[in-house]
Each structure stands twice: as C-alpha cells, then as structure tokens.
Amino acid sequence: MRAMVLREHGDNDKLQFVADYPTPKAGAGDVVIRVRASSINYHDVFTRRGMPGIKVPLPVIVGLDVAGEVSELGAGVEGWKIGDRVLIDPINRVEGGLMGETQDGGLAEFCRAKAHQLIGIPDEVSFEQAAALPVAYGTAIRMMNTIGKIKPGEKVLILGASGGVGVCCVQLAKLAGAYVIACAGSEEKGRRLTELGADEIILYTQTDFMKAVFERHGKPHRRRFAKGGGVDVVVNFTGGDTWVKSMRVLKLGGRLLTCGATAGYAPTEDIRFIWTFELQILGSNGWEPDDIRTLFGMVQSGTLKVLIDKAYPLEDASEALRVIEDRVVFGKVVVTP
C-alpha cells in the first residue's frame, strides 16, 4: 500500500512516501479500514520530531485521526461489517497505545485498529469532517465544557484561536453564552474568527495581548471588595512565554485552561499570581468516546462547524505537517489517501 513513513525523528525530510509498504492484516479483535481521510494535529509534529520521555517504535506511520470504511474484520469481531463508515478513536482504552505513535496511524491507504476503537460515522457527516474531530474538537469540548465549565456572560480569552482546537473553543464558548476574545496572528484570521462568533480580536503580531486586555477591560484587582478588570477564563495550550501573561490578565478567582504546550512545556512561572488572585489552573487531557458522539450530533444539527482549511493527497502529507508546524492554517488540515 501507499504510506507516509517515519523511520527516524527529525525535520519534515524524515517523512518518506513509500508506494509498496506492507498492508496491515486483521488479527483477533482487529479491524482494517480503508482510509478516506486523516487529519493532522500538532501532536503529529511532536511525533515526527521525537518527544522526551516517549518511546516511539520506528518505523511508524503518523496520523492520529483516521476515518474510513471497514475493509477487513478479524476473528471475534462483532457489530461491524465490511463497508461500514467508521472513525477510529485514536486512544486504545483497553490495551493502551495511541494511533500514529505507538501503532501505525492514518497517513496510509489502510490502517489497523482494535474493534473497540471504532465509532460509527453518521450519514450526514463526511469522512473529512469526522477525521477532524477527535484530537482537536474532542480536546476542546472536554476542556471547555467538562473541565472549564464556561458560563454565560463570562469573558473568555482564547490564545491560538485560529488552530484546530482554537476554532472549536471559540464556537463552544459562544454556545455557552460567553463573551469571546480571540487572539489571531493576522487580520484575515481575525476576520474569519469574527465570522465564527468571536466578539473581539487581539492581533498578537501587532500588540501584546496582556496590554490589550488591560487597556480594553481593565487591570485585575486582587482585593475582593475592589472592582477589577481582566477576564474570567484564559484558554492557553501554547505555553511558552504566554503562560505568565495569561495568569496576569485573569480576574480574582479566574480559571486558566490548558491542554497542551505547542510553544514550550517548561515556561517561566510566577506562582505569586496563583495565590494572590486565587487562580485555578485546570488541565484537560484528551476526550471520551461520548464526547465524539456529542460532536457528531452537533455537526449533524449545524450547531458546530468543522473548519477544514486545506486538504492534501497522501504523497504531499509532509506538506500538511509543515503548514501545521508553521501555523499557516485556519482550522484543520486533512490528508485524503
């Protein structure tokens, strides 16, 4: 089969397009699907580079998010048939492991997974839309709804708002009735975020987001009896030099939500802000299968938009990782083998 294979960690040139890679076979409890779409996430970039403390068996086919049709059933598999439209939950919640990291992922014509990882795709949802959901939108819905519990009227500042997780966070915050402040790197991305529902845009390439919040919404006050400014919630999955600034714009009792660290996982910290302003630092990790089913229902009803910015053929999958790494996308990027 055709596949994009990673044989050693490094830059994009380490991804190799192979026209005759072995096609996976279904063992007991397995299914093989004919891949119709795989979406790219920043986690795929980390896998390509190599992550401290995580052993990736090489060679490996990257790609966490995979949607397609069942092409082969292994012994003992029930409830599925050849041709079923399915999404693979990237997390193997029984044996452990992750698609595109500890086992081959979606950047190939065929992909093997355990039958318990399958989630049926509703007829109204395309393969591309389905593939865009698990990692980005699944992470967002757990972080915003289950962990963050965004409330009507709250001011929510979203960093990285134009990426896959970000565009979902914007929509979920608006659906919750919040006032959404979205950070974007260009006027075009800001315009598109406004169309998506953002109430306010901060162009971080032109102004420091912390100063912009202070100027527009006031500076937080640490005294309970004093009226202060700032925001109720900051969504920060970039880390790096935005971390302390995110704490500084929060109101007394504010919440900082995080689900990743694309700009650096070991930022400078200032814990004085945490105790002085009684801040809550809330981590969110992954999603549950029911979150994906909820997202399917929202997409079916038109409540939630799946924003796919670019689509690439399999042989150009390395370019798909590049645009994610360089942050020159709005929403999701998919590869269609």
Results as ranks from 00 to 15, higher is better:
2 R>M: 07
4 M>S: 13
5 V>S: 00
9 H>K: 06
9 H>M: 02
12 N>E: 04
15 L>Q: 06
23 T>M: 10
24 P>E: 04
25 K>W: 01
26 A>S: 08
29 G>S: 10
32 V>T: 03
34 R>C: 02
35 V>C: 02
41 N>S: 09
47 T>V: 15
49 R>A: 10
59 P>Y: 01
64 L>G: 08
75 A>K: 14
81 K>L: 06
87 L>N: 10
88 I>E: 00
94 V>Y: 05
94 V>L: 03
97 G>K: 13
99 M>T: 14
102 T>C: 07
121 I>A: 00
122 P>L: 03
124 E>A: 15
124 E>V: 12
134 P>E: 09
136 A>M: 13
140 A>M: 11
148 G>M: 01
151 K>R: 15
157 L>W: 03
160 G>A: 10
166 G>L: 07
176 A>P: 12
180 V>G: 01
185 G>F: 05
187 E>I: 09
188 E>K: 15
191 R>C: 02
205 T>W: 01
205 T>S: 15
209 F>Y: 14
223 R>M: 13
226 A>S: 11
234 V>N: 03
235 V>Q: 05
239 G>E: 11
247 M>H: 08
249 V>N: 02
250 L>F: 04
256 L>N: 05
262 T>D: 00
274 I>S: 12
275 W>M: 14
275 W>Q: 13
280 Q>E: 11
284 S>N: 08
288 E>G: 07
300 Q>Y: 01
312 Y>A: 02
313 P>L: 00
321 L>C: 06
321 L>N: 06
322 R>H: 08
330 F>H: 09
